[in-house]
Design a protein around this nucleic acid. Structure first.
Lengths: 236, 236
DNA sequence: TCCCCCTCTTGATAATCATCAATTGGGTTT
DNA sequence: AAACCCAATTGATGATTATCAAGAGGGGGA
């Protein structure tokens, strides 16, 4: 954990360059720019339950998840936490702060599974950005996408009852699959999913129970099978 | 309503150039660029209750509200509508779409008060953008800000009970005022505010009633006075 | 001015969901 | 294998809020 020595950095880049290349934040960078950026990169390991940063801490870096899963959440006035986002591997987070005067993280970041991260300096990246107009356009597209994702989440949270929220969640998990009986694994613990949907774990459990009873889905552990796609869609 | 003739366009720009200049989408443009952009501008009048566009329509333009107020909302599966944003005068909307491949409006737009709008061509603006890296940075900052606003809204929607949501709403209306007894007008009808908070108008009314009873606020029509700032803050 | 329409309010009731409590189950450590 | 921990489940209860219904207030148009 810490700044890389020069030789390590070269090794590091050879190994992970391709990984980063797949991400839109880095795909538009030239090789030399990417190398330059990586010189300031740190590799971090965050144990399960450990914090990376806390809400209202100064935001100097953004992060790329190599492996594991990070939880971004806000602490509500009553002490409970609201999960804003669960960030799986190969995704970045906290990079949107870089572009505005805001210097505080608006969320806390905690690992829900042991995680490996790359950290990038906001200042370094911004320097690159100023010399690469195309990159700006890519980022604008990215932020715009995120904005629409949030829109979706706001919609989910506004859905009348919890059943609708769960159903909507399941539906989002199977878009793209055109199988008659779509199947997938819950990406995280059920209580975390419940948290994202702003319902209690107990409620989530009961709703799943009912959906199973009605033969709409099956769920064993984290393994979910949709048995009746139409029925699920009609729940909405 | 429609494309402007050349003389009108010049007149138009003289009158409204300053107005637009105050908005970050246009503040970084050179005079000539702004003039170029305005050549494709249309002036629209939308009557109360009239639609500007519907969800899933193709998005070719974004808009600036000169006067009046627009409501952006999504229609939920059960037919009810979820208000995403209320756009007052001197603000733009639907501009974030321009930056990503997405070509459909993710919301419907309707006037809640008779509104005058400018419409701008996405393509024209993007052309300017590609030749003005600084503008991109300004926009990134703007989107980043919006992203945080949505974060706030998600948090509000996650608040346990409706009272907290209303209180939070009132608090956001008085930040910036350091008066002992802050005072403001509700920007739109109460039922719309209730909609934004994802509660029923009846519930909103009852909560306000209780807050008045407890001497925390006073409300006559749209006129709100906070009588006990501390008590309001402590409600959270 | 009066009338009408729509918002807002207030009341009563039913549905939904959170909370508390106890138990089960699965996975990991010792 | 046993002990343990935490997640998940299930049940019972109470609080919150949506819904339905009816009445009051307010502003704009005839």
């Amino acid at each position: 954990m810490g700044m890389l020595k020069k030789e390590d950095a070269m090794q590091f880049q050879k190994i992970h360059g391709q990984l980063l290349r797949k991400h839109h934040l880095f795909s538009a960078l030239s090789d030399s720019d990417l190398a330059k950026l990586m010189r300031g990169t740190r590799v971090l390991s965050v144990g399960k339950g450990e914090f990376l940063f806390q809400q209202n801490e100064e935001a100097r870096h953004f992060y790329f998840v190599v492996s594991g899963c990070m939880k971004l959440f806000r602490t509500l006035p009553d002490g409970t936490e609201k999960i804003i986002e669960l960030v799986p591997s190969n995704q970045t987070f906290a990079e949107a702060l870089m572009f505005s005067a805001q210097t505080m993280y608006p969320v806390s970041a905690q690992a829900v599974e042991p995680a490996e991260l790359f950290s990038f300096s906001n200042i370094d990246y911004m320097t690159l950005l100023k010399s690469s107009p195309d990159l700006s356009l890519v980022l604008l597209g990215d932020l715009s996408r995120r904005l629409r994702m949030r829109l979706n989440e706001i919609e989910v949270l506004s859905l009348k009852n919890s059943t609708h929220r769960v159903v909507r969640y399941l539906m989002t998990q199977i878009v793209g699959s055109d199988s008659e009986y779509p199947q997938f694994d819950l990406p995280v613990a059920k209580r975390l999913i419940a948290g994202q949907l702003a319902i209690q774990p107990e409620t989530f459990s009961r709703i799943v129970h009912r959906l199973k009873e009605e033969g709409v889905i099956d769920m064993k552990g984290k393994e979910v099978t949709v048995l009746d796609r139409k029925a699920l869609a009609n729940y909405e």
